[in-house]
Design a protein around this nucleic acid. Structure first.
Lengths: 236, 236
DNA sequence: TTAGTTATAGTCATCTTGACCAAAACTAAT
DNA sequence: ATTAGTTTTGGTCAAGATGACTATAACTAA
């Protein structure tokens, strides 16, 4: 990488270095209650600054890839995951984010389906954490995660982003559990059903989820498109 | 600046260069109807690429300023304006935004009050345009402006951003004119009043706007805070 | 067969929204 | 001085959305 080979004088005149990071969300059953909760993978810092602390997956931007591609690659390289949803979160460029040099981080946030998340790589230096129990992270990454959580809650309440945390087929109870996990409050099943069913992007299938202990719930499918970012503006 | 002194080999290994641009909105009376409409200042490209075309104000990021400060400085330097509202829009980093070199632009959008906008510098190379009649701009700036307009309309409909396009005191009719200009449709005065007055951030003053042709409208004041960006999180 | 639990349907009061009506308060014209 | 015209401001009413709640259907486990 360029900046590592530059001497001190060059570093002071060189532009701030540019990095891509990603906040990755996936659902996993809580160890205690078994209900789905939000988890995210973090990587351990193996060098200074903040050596030993956990941090968001990230890396440099190469010349041949767009910002979104860089985020996508980073996701794949650190966790082996392919996201079902990927959106730019914010560009963080405060002066003192990194003690050694000026870094501007363009941060993305991603949603991963549970089937994918199940086969995610985990290792000594890559570990999953509950989003509400992270402890102290490197750099300003706690603030970044807070903002990503705020954005996720927002998109959930307005947009139609919950389905990207689920598989292709799902029950309405599963959708409700996503909402309850992210918004952290109970929702009335009947009212929730009515609201979800009023959106045209939900398609009833003829299938039912068998094997449960109670009345078998119908399976549904999501037919909507992701969003309206500048990067994702294929369909107007 | 660093990249201009680098040779070709260095250019290919150096990280993409980083720029800050700003979409600046202000209200000005339409020449035809006299009603307030959205305008924005653009600067003329004086060198290649896109020499002669109009472009968003922008420039490099210096080492001693945050992203927001860089946007603010850029605003001041090109137009002489101080914004009443400034928020990050998006980081644009497509591979072919600029034909000569790879550039990542972190774009802000700003709102300027009419008193400020009236004394804005205008010159051979800085000119104001109606936001809905821009023509072809340099780089991907047409797409950026489109996205900024979308964001403005969104924030207007949900957030409380309209007041930053007005002075300290305003009538409800003036607020309505802002909404009508930005959303491009007529709004019922009575219903609009009811909706605006239901937000607690609007304060009635004892004053009335005199000198009009009809019943003198009461003047109001906005008491809310800007927003909830990561950069603006002073008040939770 | 029965108890327990979830899925699904529906009711009802409350709140919000858009369409519309009308009085109040001013100016300009007669 | 009176009247016509316009904007401001306050209000009603029906339609739609929302939250609290009740009830039935459909399954499992005992």
């Amino acid at each position: 990488m360029y900046t590592s080979s530059a001497n001190v004088a060059e570093r002071q005149t060189a532009p701030p270095s540019l990095a891509i990071s990603t906040v990755i969300f996936a659902l996993r059953p809580s160890e205690t209650s078994g209900r789905p909760t939000l988890w995210m993978p973090l990587v351990r810092r193996i060098r200074e600054p903040f050596k030993g602390l956990w941090a968001l997956p990230g890396g440099p931007l190469t010349h041949t890839e767009s910002l979104q591609d860089a985020a996508s690659r980073n996701l794949r390289e650190t966790t082996g995951l392919a996201p079902s949803y990927l959106e730019q979160l914010y560009a963080f460029g405060g002066l003192h984010r990194s003690p050694s040099q000026r870094v501007v981080s363009i941060v993305y946030w991603a949603l991963v389906q549970p089937t994918e998340a199940a086969l995610a790589d985990e290792s000594e230096n890559v570990k999953w954490f509950r989003a509400d129990r992270l402890g102290e992270l490197a750099f300003d990454h706690n603030a970044i995660v807070d903002y990503a959580l705020w954005r996720l809650r927002n998109k959930l309440a307005y947009g139609s982003v919950a389905y990207h945390l689920l598989g292709e087929y799902f029950t309405l109870a599963q959708v409700r559990e996503v909402y309850e996990a992210v918004l952290d409050r109970q929702l009335d099943p009947a009212n929730f059903r009515r609201q979800i069913m009023s959106t045209p992007e939900i398609e009833e299938t003829g299938e039912y989820l068998q094997g449960g202990k109670h009345r078998p719930p119908r399976l549904y499918r999501f037919t909507g498109r992701p969003g309206l970012d500048p990067d994702n503006r294929s369909t107007p």
